[in-house]
Design a protein around this nucleic acid. Structure first.
Length: 562
RNA sequence: GCGGGCGUAGUGUAGCUGGUUAUCACUUGAGCUUGCCAAGCUCAUAACACGGGUUCAAAUCCCGUCGCCCGCACCA
């Protein structure tokens, strides 16, 4: 077998209709690619398996949110601020730096400065490049695509940089839909957009990309997981951030030692492993690496990347992050909506507390119309609000002190049936394009003589069966066409081909990644059996033509697990 | 964004010290042939990234733009 390069794979992709550079006749645009006929189906098949796992096996619900969102959403999510890079380039040596890094020590909080402020600070202090070259102007670059919603000025909007926000902003709807119980999960398959500075490496870094994201809302105090028992003994390859060394261990051991933060995280790492290997990623070239605290995204508390070894090096394909309460808290602050979950106690608890009770007889005559509002304020307070026998309320925007004439502190007995908590979010986020590419590269096999086979897993292969008459004559083509129709009627994608030599047709299917080829020959006309050729071994078995559908279906089956 | 390399049919390439109709192979299509692994024969389709300049003449030289690859920086 020859060493594979990404160029080989992309060349095959284009030749066979998997991936095309976008807008090619106009010269192309970096970071934009189109999926061709086979690529589209491969992508759909990968998504279908993913849905099967998350929706059917794990019980997540699915939504389909908008690609465009108003500015407020991304202010709250942190993307407007955190996705902006302020950079500055040395005029002499061409080196570029993050502007805020260069003024470290000159300002208590460089991160908070605007481009103009940074510019001034750099100039005033005559900051120079380490090579002593002069620095060019500070440039601002936000990784989000900005647009305007509506005519005229309109509202500022952005193309979403991740699909996740559509789920977070729908939290109240989803919480209700899921019968107000934790944990519950929601998935979404869709596009995200990031205006990358330099998209490279084919479909690995795109400006418009496909994501499959799952957001699991859990009780912050209970990150155990029922099906964890079934997977804790399984092997896993980890690169923890404390050592940076690759270790082979089990999920159970990693959770016990605290390497992996909790059971839920561990469980979904296993789900990720199961998914990735099922779509054809080589388990030997797959590992989980924990983010260093410095590379963690602004929203993440802990993050493990599933990394796949490609010709381009170890490449992240899935990020499994514990986002904590970051997103929901931020959206609560910005939107004022209630994004909590109500945790019911097993037994209602009797709670005794000191409450403030308004004295209506005094409040009414004195404050007239404002009395109702004062009552509300007092009832919302706790006895701890009382200082020196007085409490402060607001009347017409003015602070006003009330003494014991207007209220009393009394002990009340209340029943508490539960508490409100902001759920934590565990997020397995999948880069669909990268996964698809990894499938192709791991499936790519080239012999010394240049013979290409794409060993895609049958489950994801765009074409399942090539159907050929040995030769297009003597009625063999009629039988083959009938068999082809029978397969398609059962939902099995086929490719009928009666041109040229049989070997050439096998070769064509091998390169397209088709797992089986069925050939109708002279014996078929007499005995009714056909040959089924296996792509990976080139071996043939004779099977009755009537059993071909069952043969294929049996091999496309997949059980729910674990 | 900076530095270096590069851009010729669907793919991989030759030509690039300027000069007929741009080389070769594979692929693709049609036909003959073909009794199971890219067989053979005939024919056909198909390319100088884009724009400008120099010149009698540009794939070739110059400039610009776009794109690709590598390194740096940045990032998921």
């Amino acid at each position: 077998m020859k060493e594979v390069t990404s160029g080989d794979v992309l060349s095959l992709c284009k030749r066979r209709g998997y991936i095309y550079p976008a807008y090619e006749i106009y010269g192309g645009i970096a970071g934009l690619y189109d999926y061709g006929p086979l690529g589209t189906v491969l992508k759909e098949n990968i998504v279908a398996l993913w849905r099967r796992i998350y929706a059917l096996q794990e019980g997540f619900v699915e939504i389909d949110g908008d690609n465009i969102g108003p500015e407020a959403v991304f202010k709250a999510s942190g993307h407007v601020d955190s996705f902006a890079d302020l950079s500055v380039t040395c005029k002499a040596c061409g080196e570029s730096y993050r502007a805020d890094h260069l003024v470290q020590g000159l300002h208590p909080n460089p991160d908070s400065l605007s481009a103009a402020e940074l510019q001034r600070l750099l100039r005033e202090n005559d900051v120079r490049c380490p090579c002593n070259g002069e620095l060019a102007d500070v440039e601002e670059f936000n990784l989000m695509f900005k647009t305007r919603i509506g005519p005229g000025g309109g509202r500022i909007g952005y193309l979403r940089p991740e699909t996740a926000q559509s789920i977070f902003v729908n939290y109240p709807n989803l919480y209700r839909y899921c019968r107000e119980k934790l944990p519950f999960g929601c998935i979404q398959v869709g596009r995200g957009f990031r205006n990358e500075i330099s998209p490279r490496q084919g479909v690995i870094r795109l400006r418009e990309f496909n994501m499959m994201e799952a957001e699991l809302f859990v009780d912050p105090e209970d990150k155990t997981w029922p099906r964890y028992e079934g997977i804790k003994g399984k092997q896993v390859r980890l690169v923890p951030n404390v050592t940076g060394e690759e270790v082979e261990t089990t999920y159970g051991e990693a959770v016990e030692k605290g390497t992996i933060g909790n059971q839920t995280l561990a469980y979904f790492m296993w789900v990720t492993f199961d998914f990735l290997t099922s779509v054809g990623i080589d388990p030997v070239r797959l590992r989980f690496r924990q983010h260093l605290s410095t590379e963690m995204a602004h929203y993440a508390a802990d993050c493990w990347d599933a990394e796949v070894l490609l010709s381009l090096g170890w490449t992240e394909v899935v990020g499994i992050a514990d986002r904590g309460c970051w997103d929901l808290s931020r959206h609560m602050e910005h939107s004022k909506a209630d994004l909590t979950a109500f945790k019911r106690y097993d037994e209602p608890q009797d709670v005794v507390r000191d409450a403030i009770r308004p004295k209506f007889g005094a409040l009414g005559p004195r404050f007239k119309g404002a009395a109702g509002d004062i009552k509300k304020q007092l009832e919302g307070m706790d006895a701890s609000a009382v200082h020196d026998g007085k409490v402060t309320v607001k009347v017409d925007g003015q602070d006003l002190e009330l003494d014991g004439e207007y209220f009393e502190v009394v002990q009340v007995q209340e029943k508490e049936t539960g508490v409100r908590v902001v759920p934590h979010v565990i997020e397995p986020s999948h880069g669909l394009d990268r996964i698809l590419y990894a499938c192709l590269e791991h499936a790519y096999g080239e012999k010394e003589d240049g013979y290409l086979t794409l060993g895609l897993k049958p489950l994801v292969a765009p074409i399942k069966v090539g159907v050929f008459p040995l030769m297009a004559k003597d009625g063999m083509e009629v039988v083959a066409q009938a068999l082809d129709l029978a397969l398609r009627e059962e939902g099995i994608a086929t490719y009928y081909d009666d041109s040229g030599s049989i070997g050439r047709r096998y070769a064509r299917m091998d390169e397209a990644g088709t797992p089986w080829c069925v050939t109708v020959d002279y014996d078929t006309l007499e005995q009714g059996d056909v040959t089924i050729r296996d792509r990976d071994t080139a071996e043939q078995v004779r099977v009755s033509a009537d059993d071909v559908v069952a043969f294929v279906k049996e091999r496309l089956k997949r059980k729910l697990s674990p």
